[in-house]
Design a protein around this nucleic acid. Sequence first.
DNA 1: GTACATAGTATCATAAGACGTACTATTAAA
DNA 2: TTTAATAGTACGTCTTATGATACTATGTAC
Lengths: 114, 114
Amino acid sequence: MEVRKELLEIGCPIGVTQNIMAGKWKLVIVWLLKDDTKRFGELRRALPQIRQGYLTQQLRELERDGLVHRKVYNVVPPKVEYSLTDIGIRFLEVMNKMYEWGEEYSNLIKNLCK
Amino acid sequence: MEVRKELLEIGCPIGVTQNIMAGKWKLVIVWLLKDDTKRFGELRRALPQIRQGYLTQQLRELERDGLVHRKVYNVVPPKVEYSLTDIGIRFLEVMNKMYEWGEEYSNLIKNLCK
DNA sequence: GTACATAGTATCATAAGACGTACTATTAAA
DNA sequence: TTTAATAGTACGTCTTATGATACTATGTAC
């Protein structure tokens, strides 16, 4: 894990979190890794809308920031497995709250539509 | 509150939440409104880095999405007060989790720096 | 010796987000 | 009659984020 010292300069823990989860697909990727390790190809097939290069980039950022572990098997054809680290697993608590609130919010606006 | 039906089409509550909190200053604004109503000028002075037009825009989006209430007093010079709505207050739970996790994460990388 | 599979890279194009500066309406007070 | 204060708007610019397409390495199976 490469430490990004500039994150500490933000000063506010919320700002740190916001910075790390920024990126259109990062939350979805973490969510997909929630229960088990996944190979690169599995993630790609699970997210057909996302271009391969961008998936790689997002995964590398998650790895750099220490949420995701990347395990390379030295075989041909290549095999790489992604999984959540401890701090990545603890990030799921944030996502659970986001889920709860998002559900509540959705119900609210559904009612307004009636 | 203007209902954004496209949010419901996202399908995933986390995606809904992510969509609503997107925007560089929205979380900070909600945080500033956490305890009490604030006038526009107070927010502006609290956030000198943010340009006035952009602050207005972020506030309008928060109002549109129902997190923030905007109360206009019909006086001169103008007076406008911003406060959190019920669903906005409940959003603070998400932010609290972000705070906790961000703190934990910051401690982790501080230790790595040693 | 050709094709296939995986996990990528490289390059360019476009769209979205954020920024800077300048401008407005209104009335009360100087 | 000019100035000050508040809460904005209206541009144009610039940067960052995301998207599309094409290309690479390597060993195994055919």
